[in-house]
């Protein structure tokens, strides 16, 4: 998009400069033709020509320079977007290294404790659980930043590829099932029709949106999370429901705001960055779909029948 604008400006500037130059050169002639007896006509035409020339040259030069800067990152011709992604991947890999070591130690310790049958202090068990549970959080956080970088890149467009939506939902379910189980939550999923088939769209975006929705649901669900994948004629939907306390009306307006989390209102420790639902909603729109929320808060103490349901709708085929 920005490339097209800069290119148009470049040619417009160049045309203006050429027109200006032409006016300067032709001003004596034009002045004589228009008013043969009044040579003062030459000056305004020359001034206008000079103005056109200077302005056109500046616009053309600046557009050329900006376009080049946004296009070429290094001498190898990669775009800045590619260079940024490259650096970010390296950064993400290196940042993951300490976590991989901590996670590895934790899993070894857990295996050892299981083998020996040693009874551990409650705090030790909680610490081991916490390390394991924070790993998907970390993975999601890194991915959120990567997607944000991509969303900021005006030239980036959603991929169009054959996508096995059921496989993506299944993968997300597998990723979060152990965490949900640890928290006493049953995570289930199904798709209708059971042979769901392929759709055409951006698989990474779908994966990322569903991951954010399920991650969010594991924080608030009381006993169950359901992921439902359904298909209609032109759209398919992924609905993620949880039986958590629901979202208050005053919060609902901010749910998709960047950086907003419920803890901000409660003045308590933040459990998330507040980027997930903003990114999910932005990605959904970018892929030609939408993300809506439907919630119910119960008035009784036990929050019976309360729920929150996020529904992501995307086109079955976005090739057109």
């Amino acid at each position: 998009m920005s490339e097209r604008i800069f290119s148009t400006l470049k040619y417009a500037g160049l045309s203006l400069a050429v027109l200006g130059l032409g006016l300067i050169l032709l001003s004596p002639l034009i002045g004589e033709i228009v008013t043969p007896d009044m040579l003062w006509w030459i000056e305004p035409v020359a001034y206008i020509g000079s103005g056109f020339f200077i302005f056109g040259t500046i616009v053309g030069y600046m557009s050329f320079k900006f376009n080049r800067n946004s296009q070429v990152g290094r001498s190898d011709g990669r775009t800045w977007s590619q260079v940024t992604q490259d650096y970010f991947d390296t950064f993400a890999h290196d940042m993951g290294r300490p976590l991989r070591r901590i996670l590895g130690k934790q899993r070894e310790a857990r295996a050892l404790l299981n083998e020996t049958g040693e009874v551990t202090h409650r705090m030790v068990a909680e610490l081991l659980d916490e390390i394991e549970n924070q790993a998907p959080n970390f993975r999601l956080m890194i991915e959120n930043v990567r997607v944000l970088v991509d969303l900021e890149d005006q030239s980036s467009t959603p991929a169009v590829e054959p996508v096995d939506s059921a496989a993506i939902v299944r993968n997300v379910s597998d990723r979060y099932s152990p965490i949900a189980r640890e928290r006493g939550i049953d995570l289930i999923w199904w798709c209708e029709p059971s042979e769901f088939g392929l759709v055409y769209g951006d698989g990474s975006a779908l994966d990322h949106v569903v991951t954010n929705l399920v991650d969010n649901a594991t924080k608030f669900a009381a006993h169950q999370i359901e992921i439902q994948l359904t298909r209609e004629d032109k759209f398919y939907s992924v609905r993620v429901s949880d039986d958590g306390p629901g979202i208050a009306d005053s919060y609902l307006a901010h749910v998709f705001d960047r950086g907003w989390t419920p803890e901000l209102s409660a003045r308590s420790e933040k459990q998330s960055s507040g980027l997930g639902l903003f990114i999910a909603s932005t990605l959904a729109e970018r892929c030609g779909g939408d993300l809506i929320v439907d919630t119910y808060q119960s008035n009784d103490d036990k929050n019976k029948n309360a729920y929150t349901r996020f529904t992501l709708s995307l086109p079955v085929d976005n090739r057109s």
Binding site: S173, W189, W190, C191, I227
Partner: peptide, 10 residues
């Protein structure tokens, strides 16, 4: 295949 998969009635 997947721990949480529900097999539809159909």
């Amino acid at each position: 295949r997947s721990e949480g998969e529900v097999v539809p009635f159909s």
